[in-house]
């Protein structure tokens, strides 16, 4: 019981990390980005590539992987999404789905379809006991990085002019433009942030478990589940949602592995029916 909780929370950190960008893009640009999972996977593979191919130290490879993914996100926004998003929302959906396919195919061409993992020698002890639960050190490192980077994201969004501009665009696009904010640039920056954090999630995850291009969709779906639980448009919601989803999916896989997916989706439905705004979602009063 206790170990299920601990391991679930540890996983939850990465789910939250992956979901931040998904939530941000949905809230600010107003699109469900089906290519989000592809960005997570891209970040993981890019990090692995930098570390293995060029011998870059992990911390640098991770930052490179994250920023590279952010850049890819911004390019996707400028070249594709920006051109269609004023049209039918459905078209953007189809488009991001197509982008996911293209990114995945290109990733497969470049890196192959094999699963890759980045093996780290940290010099840390293998782990320690937390009560009766053995906590692997590196899991904890990943969890800490998740929380710290979440804090960085909170500061960027909450305390900087850039973050204010992003939130202003989310709240009211026209008013933001009338205040001198360049909407297109802000969306690109939003996609950059989203991609960077998605890439960071992938960069962390690739040290824990193998990653391959074909895995992108489950990341998109998981991100979706996380923000449904945590609440749309709130970064704190994504964090809490990620942790709750981590425990939920871990518990389901532990206690009833064969029907685990049914359980997680069941909880999603319950949330949609009884608490559509999620645990921490903005109430209707200040919804646009």
């Amino acid at each position: 019981m206790e170990d299920v909780l601990v391991y679930g929370l540890l996983r939850g950190g990465i789910y939250a990390l992956a979901a931040f960008g998904f939530s941000l893009v949905l809230g600010v640009i107003g699109i469900v980005n089906f290519a989000h999972g592809a960005l997570v996977v891209f970040g993981g593979l890019l990090t692995q590539y930098l570390a293995v191919k060029f011998g870059v130290p992990y911390a640098a490879a991770m930052i490179g992987g994250a920023l590279g993914t952010g850049l890819l996100g911004a390019v996707i926004q400028r070249l594709f999404v920006a051109r269609t998003f004023t049209l039918e929302p459905l078209m953007v959906l189809v488009q991001t789905f197509g982008i996911a396919t293209v990114v995945t195919e290109l990733g497969t061409l470049g890196w192959g379809s094999e699963e890759r993992m980045l093996r780290l020698k940290t010099g840390l002890p293998p782990g320690f006991m937390l009560g009766d639960t053995f906590v692997p050190s590196f899991d904890l490192v990943v969890f800490a990085v998740s929380l710290v980077s979440a804090a960085v994201l909170f500061v960027v969004l909450g305390r900087t002019e850039f973050g204010r501009a992003i939130r202003a665009c989310r709240d009211n696009r026209e008013s933001a433009q009338l205040s001198g904010i360049n909407l297109g640039r802000t969306f690109e920056k939003t996609m950059f942030l989203s991609g960077t954090w998605a890439g960071l999630a992938g960069a962390m995850f690739v040290t824990l478990s193998p990653v391959a291009p074909y895995m992108h969709f489950s990341w998109t779906v998981d991100s979706f589940l996380v923000i449904t639980i945590g609440g749309l448009g709130s970064m704190l919601g994504a964090l809490v949602g990620g942790l709750v989803f981590g425990v939920l999916s871990f518990g389901a896989s532990f206690y009833a592995p064969t029907i685990a997916p049914a359980i997680t989706f069941g909880v999603l439905l319950v949330f949609l029916v009884f608490r559509p705004q999620g645990l921490l979602g903005a109430g209707p009063a200040i919804r646009k």
Binding site: Y7, S249, S253, F254, P257
Partner: peptide
Amino acid sequence: VVLPMNVQDLRPTAL
């Protein structure tokens, strides 16, 4: 331990 074909996380199984 019987696992669904689309299983992602093997930590629960290890546990």
